[in-house]
Design a protein around this nucleic acid. Sequence first.
DNA 1: GCCACTATACCGACTAGTCGGTTTTTTCGA
DNA 2: TCGAAAAAACCGACTAGTCGGTATAGTGGC
Lengths: 180, 180
Amino acid sequence: MGHAASTVHRLITAYQDILVSEGERSATLEAIAARAGVSKGGLTYHFRSKDELAAALFERLQVLVEADLAVMRSEPSQAADYYIRSSLDVQSPLERCNMAVTRLAQGSHPEANELLARCRTQWFEVLMDAVGHEDMVHLVMLLGDGIYFNASLTGTGAMPEETDPATIDRIVRLIGTIRY
Amino acid sequence: MGHAASTVHRLITAYQDILVSEGERSATLEAIAARAGVSKGGLTYHFRSKDELAAALFERLQVLVEADLAVMRSEPSQAADYYIRSSLDVQSPLERCNMAVTRLAQGSHPEANELLARCRTQWFEVLMDAVGHEDMVHLVMLLGDGIYFNASLTGTGAMPEETDPATIDRIVRLIGTIRY
DNA sequence: GCCACTATACCGACTAGTCGGTTTTTTCGA
DNA sequence: TCGAAAAAACCGACTAGTCGGTATAGTGGC
């Protein structure tokens, strides 16, 4: 079954991608529909309103985060490492979805804000179980956020060199030398 | 001179504040004018277009960043410390302005993107002069970005506890123990 | 008298959402 | 297995409302 993705899936992805690369303002119903390869009518058949589209995006994020948490729980010794490194992978479904929801949150979408808060709490808890030192967990999460923030600016337009994987490697090694 | 801020200043601030707290979509000409306490006609008297308003916002950021860089240059030994700590001060004019321009950049505003890139390059250079170790500078900047990103999410809606100054203090001490 | 506005009216472009209708796919009894 | 009916998927024109921008007549203070 080498299916093309379902229309519903394509519509959510289209919404997500436009949010990430062009911002909320550009994510019009027609733009979303066009990117998904359907008409506006086709979009509204599956999603009666933009809010329903957003709700579907939120659900997608929840599923992706749950999978991510499962990975981290399964390998506690590498959880921090994994968290930092995966922040850099702007192409991964999770990071893209996370970025899209973040855009909505910044547009003062209360639901998006609450969802992000819940996700961050969950990551914090898993990292606490894995690392066991609160300040180190904060350091790891802040570093991840920084990498993520940087990547999201770079992805939008044109930022200079900045954070490449090799640099991240060396930084991870640096904070690995911290004795606490 | 205990002037109330000039109308021009209030308009730029109104634009900035709406961008930060409600996002680009809510920053309509009427909303900006209303927040600044003038009529729409009053706004267009000073700024013929939204682009002119944005240009004024960009200029404000450049001025504020230049002042920030001057502080860092004057006390190289505390530059990294200062950089990290000031990322947390969401109320400062610089951080608010930076946040507003970031919102525009995420809405794929090329000028905003280029300006941010320039600013970040300048911060990097000053920190390089002060710290002298490239990876440490990246670490400091990423940490600052993470704090900033966190604060910007918290400021928007309702995020949980997260990063308070005391936590940042301890984290700064942690990375201060790194021998490189 | 002119500067810094207010108040109001308007235009064209654009956007979310609706609706009638069309095409495609699935179902199912003869 | 065929064909017709039903359900699902989709199209695109339309409506109502919003936004950026323009225009203009008027007001109060210096």
